[in-house]
């Protein structure tokens, strides 16, 4: 299955979705997206970190430098209440969008 480029605006949704599962660092998040989409999606890593930082400035995630498994410091991101709220909204929006797309595409 070919990897799909992310649609504009969906990266935030993915990041928040992953972080709902628990705090994680950037690489972990990217990995998780790959796994959960069964290698179908990959966050362009060049936009991953700016996106995370943007979320942090908007107050939807918080971050902390913590020692990781192999003794390197890593920035670990945690979703906030505002982030969860946003996720809900974006998720609904996305479902609506996907449904509409399918209707259009499947209409004979």
């Amino acid at each position: 299955m070919p990897r799909t480029e992310l649609l504009q605006g969906t990266l935030d949704l993915l990041l928040l979705r992953v972080l709902v599962l628990g705090p994680n660092h950037g690489w972990g998040i990217a990995n998780r997206i790959r796994q959960m989409s069964q290698e179908g999606l990959s966050a362009s890593q060049g936009s991953l970190y700016p996106a995370l930082h943007r979320l942090e400035i908007r107050g939807e995630v918080t971050s902390e430098m913590t020692p990781s498994e192999n003794n390197r410091r890593a920035r670990v991101y945690t979703i906030t209440t505002a982030g969860r709220r946003r996720l809900k909204v974006e998720q609904k929006g996305w479902e609506h969008f996907a449904l509409s797309m399918r209707r259009v595409l499947e209409t004979e």
Binding site: H25, Q45, Y49, A74
Partner: peptide, 17 residues
């Protein structure tokens, strides 16, 4: 410094993968 550190960590993990 922190951004560098974060990115270095990413590269390292990705290399291992």
């Amino acid at each position: 410094v922190e951004i560098d550190e974060e990115l270095a960590f990413h590269v390292e993990q990705e290399t291992e993968r």
